[in-house]
Structures are given as C-alpha cells and as structure tokens.
Design a binder for these strands. Structure first.
Length: 876
RNA sequence: GGGCGCUUAGCUCAGUUGGUUCAGAGCACUUGGUUUACACCCAAGGGGUCGGGGGUUCGAAUCCCUCAGCGCCCACCA
C-alpha cells in the first residue's frame, strides 16, 4: 500500500492512544519487577493546560516511557489539587457574575457551588494531558479532596498537634483583603511600587513643639501607640520621657527609645503601629505597647478610623493626607520606591494583620529534609538549587497553615467554650466530644455544643503529603502499595515551588515514612515567549497547547518543547520549534516510506558496501546510545533528544539509507533488508519516549504485532561495545564524499554527471569503503595513483590526496591560491605544535598521552604539507 | 541589604577534572539543486580576539583577582 508522503498525526494519535488505553499498558500494580514511579505535580483541578504543564508533563512522559521500555514497573500517578484559594476565588467570581455574594450563602451552600464547579471543570486538564500522549495510570487518578486523601490530611494535622508541632498563635500574618484570608509568606509577592514618603508633624504633649516622622502609610497613624527614637540620637534628647499627640485622633502616645531605629533614615523618629507592621509589633511587644487595629477584614477602616470608617485604606490615605495638609501637618513629601507585598492569587496589596492562626513549627521537622538534600540522598537537578534550598531550610520559619476560606480541608479543631483555649483537636466529631467532655469536666456537653473551627488548611498542607497519600501511605506502615512504590523516583516540577511544595514533601516524607519521597528532583525552567516575557493569560502571549497539538501533532510539540529546554534554564518558547519537531516526525515517516518501498529479492546477494554500512551504523548506534544514556543519567533530556535527532537524521537518513539505497529499479538482498528493518526497529525504540505516536505507528506498520509486542512495551536497546575503527573508517569515507561534493559545487558539476576520482593513498585506508564513495560521489572510475595528477582539482583528507581530473582547463591561479592558503594554515598549525614540542617544560610537564597526541599532530601536519607542496609543484 | 548564578556565532545554548584540529551544536543566514523517501527536502558555505582588564601555568573559554552588564532567590528600614 502506498503511504502518504506527509505524515498526518491526528488520526494516528487518537488510534494509538486508545489502543494503549485498551490494552492497559499504562497501568501498574504491585508485582515482582522493580518499580519506577513518578507522581504528577497535581495541577489545579479547575485549571486548563498551559505551556508550563506541557513542558513538565512531556518530560515526565519521556522518563516514564523510557523506564517502561527498560523493563521497570512504570507507574505515573496523575491527579489534581483542590487549590483552595485559587478555586475559591474562581467560584466567588462566578457567583458574583450570577448576582450571588459569597456572604449570602451558608458554608454548605457555597461548598455545593464549589463542588459543582469542580465537577464541571475538574478533569479537563487531565483530558488535555491525554492528547499530549501522557501515559499516566489513569485508574490511579487522585484528587487532594478525595475522602482517603482528606483523611490523610486530618490524621496528619491531629498527629502534628499531638506532637506539639502545630499550635495556635496570635501573630502578625499576611492578610489578603480581597480574598479575606491569611497567606503564608511564600504566597506574598513583593513588587517594587512607586510611593510617597510623607513627613508628618506630631505635637509634643504639653508643649508647642513638634516632631516630624516619615511614613509611607499615613492612614496608619490612627493606630499609632508610640513614637520611637534611638536613645543615642542626640537630636532628640529633649524628647525622652515625653509624650506626643497623634494628629486627627488627638491620642496621647509615649515616646519610647530603642536602638532599632535607624538614625539615618527619614527623620530618625519612627511611629509605632503594632497592629499593622511586623517590626512595630516586635517593638510593641518589647515595650508593652497598646495594640490598635484600625482595619476591617476587607481592608476598610473600622471605628478607630473615625470619620474614615468604612472607607478603603487607600481612599482613606488620600483623604487623610488632605486633612493633614489642611492642618499644616505635612512638612514635605518625597517620591519613594518601596517593595509592596501582593497576594499571589488575587494581586491585592497585603496588609500585615494580627490574628489567631494555626502554625506549624518547622525548625526540627526541616532538619532531616535539609540533610537529605545536602548529602544528595535527594538530588536536585540542576544542582545549583542546592544553595537556595539550604538557605531557605536553614532559615525556615513557622508555617501559617490556616486560611479563612471554605474550600479545602476544614481544621479539625472543635471549640466547646468561649475561651480561646477551649478547644480540642480530634479526628472525628465523636472523638472531639469525648475529649471536650473530659477536658472541660462537663459531661453534659453535646455535639451541638461543639463548634468546629471554620478555617480550612493551606492547600500545600495537603499537597505536601501527595507522594504518600496517593498510595494511602499515611499512618499505614504496612500498606503494600506504599511499601512497593515509595520512595518514588523522579519529581519534575518548577523551581518556583521548590519551597511551597518540594521542600515540604521532603519534610513530610521523613516525618511520615522515615524516607525521602523521591530520589531526584528535575527542576524545569519557566516557559517564556521570544521576548523573554513570562507566558501569562493577561499578556495573551501564551499559545493554546491544544491548538498547537492540532497544528503540529503531539509528537511535534513534544519535540518542540524539548528542543530548547535544558534543566533549570528558562525556555524561550517559539512556535518554530514545534515546526522543527513536526519536521523531524515527518522525516522519520519518510525514511520508513523509503525503506518499505524497496523491492526485495531472495536471490539478490548482499553487497560488500551494504555490509560495511550496516556494520558502521550498528557501531555508530552503540556509540551514540552510550552518549544518550549518559545524557539521560544526568537528566539532560534535551541533549538526549539532540543526540537521537542527529543519529536519525544525519547518520541514519543522510548516510546510512543513502549508502544502502538500491539502484534505480534494482532489488535489494533479503538479508540486507531484514537487517535494515532490524536497525529501524532499534531506532524506533530510541525515539519512542520523544515521539511515541509516530514510532508506534511505524512499528505496527512494519509487522502485525500482538498486544504484548507493541512498541510501548518493547525493550530498550542494550548498550554494547563498539568498534571505533569501523566508525573511523566509514567517516573517513564520508569526508571523501564531502570533498567530492565540494568540488562539484565549486565547479558546477551536476550530481547527475559522473566524474573520475584518482587517489593518492598515503594513509593506506580501508579500500572497502570505495564502493560507497563511488556510489555517493557518483564516481565513474576510482583509481589509485602513485603521484599527483595534473589538470585536476584536488582535496585532502588527512594525508590522503584526491584528484578529480577536469575536462576543461582548470583555473590554475585559483587552485594555487587555494592550496597556498591551505599550506599556510597547515604550516602555521605545525609551527604551533612544534613550538609546544620544543618547549622542554611542556614535554616534561604534560602527561605522556598529551605529548603523544602532539607528536601525532606534528606527523600528520608534515605529511599533509608534503602533499600540498607536491600539488603546487604540479600546477606550476 | 544578604546570597546564588549568568555573560561563548544573528538567536537559543553545549563545552565534565585546565591539554586531541577546541572554539562547538541546533536554528537562522548565503549559494546551488524537481538525484527513483521527505522542499517539513538534499548538498556546500560564511559567521565568534569565548563581556573588559589583570594574574597563575609549559598551556586558560575552563582556575584566581578586578571592573562592567544581566538574571534569580531571600530579607523587607518606617
């Protein structure tokens, strides 16, 4: 059957993906084989595939497919994350569009909407991954709010609470006034913003004097509870022990002294607002200051805001400045850039706020996780991230794990009284009741008296358990699955979540399995556009991955993603790379078309040059395989692809197939053909992780295969020894062919016209390659000569000289010029080599091998110079 | 402010412990080609004083110092 010259991915991809699914190749269960496991970084359940996912999951699929070919029990666990704040924000926005406010709903009503949304949009992203060819074990698909996974989260919370690691604290936290929840430090993004530094005058009590302070947030003066000066600041000795009066609210506040104040900055006087600044809080604690919280949860001012009550903090700022101006209290203003914290999810400007929250004490938990990375039990790829990791882990701070949201795992703390400490932490309500009765000494408490903490846990408090919880391994030491699959092998993720997620998974791994969660962490780069801008929805510079797959095929896009993405480096995505990817796929397809179109005849004998080419390619393959394995072992997947790409395109297609191609209307020996098919099959195994679809398509075309013989479950080529001489001999011949082509090009001799070739064989090369040279150079006659040939164009490979006699007169001048240039270069080269060799310190100091190499170079150069000189003489 | 990293061809990047003709690859570019798979093709070719300066060494893209530019992470001084 005639095959189309253009490979069309669409139906091929659908066909083989469903075949793979039907046959259950992606499935994994506990067996006697060695496992190779990857857990997917769970994407947000309601998200859609973006380029980062494409890159990430392409890499994982390459690793998992290769492991499957290598005979491991390959298990790739897919799933999604409930993404507490992100999902809740989306649901709130959706409800708002429908005219419903979150606050009008009960918790249960809201959760119902959230689940509806999750069911509607959840899983879309997993379907998209299938289009990419992701060979996940879909039967294992997990969601962080599945009953078993939720159960793990609650168990871990209770356990850590009982261990004294989780505590409740009244602390300064990051408050997102838009989502009205706290955020962990990691969820706050600092951005440089142009602001104003206001210099404000405060009257000193019982005097007509004023002092001036500088602030970027004038609206917070209403929460001031002190002015602080540096005790060593001589300018302010007269203020010691005095009081100041806060403008507008006319509250009297003490002037305190603390060396914390920077004498150089601003005016040297610092206003202290313990409720709204982390450093001020510390000062306040130290000096026993009053705390006045002037903000509502939504970022508007509360009753302490007086006539600004109910106004947003930024509106209040403007108006308050006007009022102060009118009062003559603004000395001056100056522009000032400072870093403003914003919410990672909502973008709102974060307010430091004091509140009761749950914290996890990280210090001790982090230690084994730090050690594991430092001693490379867990390897970070690239290793440059080790330093960053260490720095973070050594300075790790307690983790604020509570969020004032509804979508997520509700904190299993139950309040039975009105006191802040009147609570118990328990796995279930029933358990909680018993504990509450006991703790309170009140046996008549009922379920109705218990109020569960309304807050939910930080999303990462469930995803940090992911490599364990997907196998139900928390608190189940004897679970067969976890004991088999854990620790997993590789984790592929983005460096931006090294701390959010990776570090915490390692911590949880040691705490709950007493073992690392994975051995290697492959940190990908960020996908950027050609202008190096991060791809984002708002910029509209991110192509739709599914459209790309439609356009270039999944194989093409996979290759495109990988062509320029060394680990840890950002990837400048360019659609042309996908074009190159689909070009590669098409090349493979056409190579197959060529081979399957040959006429094969049992009677046709195998030629010497066929044998030679096959021998060469097998050795070349083995040599390249070694390189490829080395790249894989270092997670240099782009390099592994490039090595494969060049093997297939240059070595296999351009040289091998051209060398064995039968003459026009000729036939090929059955032996040769079978060997070529065998080689083709080995190639397909090698490319399968990168281009799973086209490789399977060709594999199944080559022969009718039983399900157990599909390419996806074939066996990866073994590394073998290879003969470097065979490779070198063949490549000597390809150099000769290239020399012939250059002359053809220079002299405008068409490839269709035959030429003669005379060889001055100083190298005593393997003449078996002559047949190939004749074929690929389109040589009419190849003869060996003892001396240079006049009236011919010449070129040299090592010290061999090749002559192509010219029918017409050759341009002597031009030839002389060319040869003279080559001579000058070679002589210069010789000179530098001889200089080295005549250097006593080099000969005695350098390793023997290096010196020997230099001596070889000298000999080669000398021989070559001889041939060039001889040729020049012939021309004169 | 603290830490880490980067600077090699027009672009994106390799270059392991200093030593093979080490100055590389892919893409882009130039030129020539309807060679019986592929124009998503074939062939040939041009292109870099390895950011600047200094040092160590027989020998430096590679090690050290210094200057310049860029990026990232952490901290968050009103």
């Amino acid at each position: 059957m005639a095959l189309a010259s253009k490979y069309s991915p669409k139906e091929v991809e659908e066909k083989w993906y469903s075949y793979w699914m039907e046959q259950g190749y992606f499935k994994s269960q506990v067996n006697e084989k060695e496992p190779y496991t990857i857990v997917i970084p769970p994407p947000n359940v309601t998200g859609v595939l973006h380029m980062g996912h494409m890159l990430n999951n392409t890499l994982q699929d390459i690793l998992i497919r290769r492991a499957r070919l290598k005979g491991f029990n390959a298990c790739w666990v897919p799933g999604t994350d409930h993404a507490s704040i992100a999902t809740e924000a989306k649901v709130v926005a959706k409800l708002k569009a429908d005219g419903i406010e979150k606050n009008d709903l009960s918790r249960d009503q809201f959760l119902e909407h959230a689940w509806d949304w999750t069911h509607k949009h959840g899983g879309i992203i997993l379907e998209q991954l299938k289009k990419l060819g992701a060979s996940c074990d879909w039967d294992r698909t997990k969601f962080t709010m599945d009953p078993e996974l939720s159960d793990s989260v609650i168990k871990v919370f209770v356990d850590l609470y009982n261990k004294g690691k989780i505590y409740r604290g009244y602390r300064m936290v990051n408050w997102d006034p838009s989502a009205q929840t706290t955020l962990s430090d990691e969820e706050v993004i600092y951005q440089e913003k142009q602001g104003t530094l206001y210099y404000l005058k405060y009257q000193i009590a019982d005097s007509n004097d004023f002092l001036t302070i500088a602030t970027t947030r004038p609206e917070t003066i209403l929460g001031d509870t002190a002015i602080c000066i540096n005790p060593n600041d001589e300018r302010f000795t007269h203020l010691k022990g005095k009081k100041a009066i806060v403008p507008i609210c006319d509250r009297e506040i003490p002037i305190i002294e603390d060396e914390y104040v920077d004498i150089e900055f601003g005016t040297g006087c610092l206003k202290v607002t313990p409720a709204h600044d982390i450093n001020d809080k510390a000062l306040g604690d130290k000096h026993n200051l009053e705390i006045i919280d002037t903000l509502n949860d939504d970022g508007t001012l509360n009753s302490f805001g007086m006539h600004y009550q109910g106004k947003d903090r930024f509106v209040a700022r403007k108006e308050l400045v006007k009022e102060l101006e009118a009062m003559g209290r603004i000395v001056k203003t100056e522009p000032y850039t400072n870093n403003v914290g914003t919410s990672e999810r909502t973008g709102a400007i974060i307010e430091p706020k004091l509140s009761d929250q749950w914290f996890l004490d990280m210090k001790e938990l982090a230690q084994p996780a730090l050690d594991a990375v430092l001693n490379e039990e867990v390897a970070l790829v690239p290793a440059k991230f080790i330093n960053t990791y260490r720095h973070w882990m050594e300075n790790v701070r307690d983790w604020n794990i509570s969020r004032q949201l509804w979508w997520g795992h509700q904190i299993p703390a139950y309040f039975y009284g009105d006191g802040k400490q009147d609570f118990v932490v328990a796995q279930t309500q029933e358990e909680a009741l018993l504990m509450a009765q006991e703790t309170s000494g009140n046996a008549s408490l009922t379920i109705a008296d218990l109020k569960q903490d309304p807050d939910v846990l930080d999303t990462w408090f469930s995803s940090w358990l992911w490599p364990i919880s997907v196998f139900n391994g928390i608190m189940e030491p004897d679970n067969e699955e976890i004991n088999y699959y854990y620790p997993t092998n590789d984790l592929v993720t983005a460096p931006e979540i090294l701390f959010f997620w990776v570090a915490r998974m390692i911590i949880a791994g040691y705490e709950y399995r007493d073992a690392k969660p994975f051995s290697n962490v492959y940190l990908t780069g960020i996908v950027r556009d050609k202008q190096r801008r991060k791809m984002s929805k708002s910029l509209g510079n991110s192509p739709d991955p599914i459209e790309l797959i439609e356009k270039y095929g999944a194989d093409g896009v996979r290759v495109g993603m990988l062509l320029s993405s060394p680990a840890g480096n950002d990837l400048m995505f360019d659609e042309d790379l996908c074009k190159q990817g689909s070009g590669f796929v098409n090349k493979i397809w056409n190579a197959y078309r060529l081979v399957q179109g040959w006429d094969v005849n049992e009677q046709t004998p195998q030629t010497e040059s066929e044998k030679l080419a096959i021998d060469w390619y097998k050795n070349k393959f083995a040599q390249t395989l070694e390189t490829i394995e080395d790249h894989y072992s270092k997670y240099r997947l782009s390099d592994a692809l490039m090595a494969t790409y060049k093997l297939i395109w240059d070595d296999f297609c351009s040289w091998f197939l051209e060398a064995v191609k039968p003459p026009y209307q000729g036939t090929m020996s059955q032996t040769t053909y079978d060997q070529i098919i065998g080689i083709f099959e080995e190639n397909l195994k090698l490319i399968h992780p990168f281009v799973p679809f086209v490789s399977e398509e060709i594999w199944q075309h080559i022969a009718k295969r039983n399900p157990e013989d599909a390419l996806i479950v074939a066996s990866w080529p073994e590394t073998t020894d290879f003969n470097e001489k065979v490779i070198a001999d063949f490549e000597f011949a390809t150099d000769v062919v290239a020399g012939i082509r250059t002359i053809r090009k220079e002299k405008n001799i068409s490839f269709k016209d035959t030429i003669d070739l005379k060889v001055l064989d100083n190298e005593k090369v393997n003449q078996q390659t002559d047949a190939m040279i004749t074929k690929l150079g389109n040589i009419a006659s190849l003869d060996y000569v003892d001396a240079g040939v006049d009236g011919a164009m010449s070129f040299r490979v090592k010290s061999n000289e090749y002559f192509v006699p010219m029918a017409g007169a050759i341009d002597v001048e031009e030839e002389i010029a060319k040869l003279t240039e080559e001579l000058a270069y070679t002589e210069g080269f010789l000179k530098s080599v001889q200089k080295k060799l005549s250097n006593e310190r080099f000969v005695s100091g350098a390793p023997e091998q290096v010196v020997a190499i230099e001596r070889n170079k000298e000999a080669d150069a000398l021989a070559k110079i001889e041939t060039i000189k001889a040729s020049l003489k012939g021309l004169e």
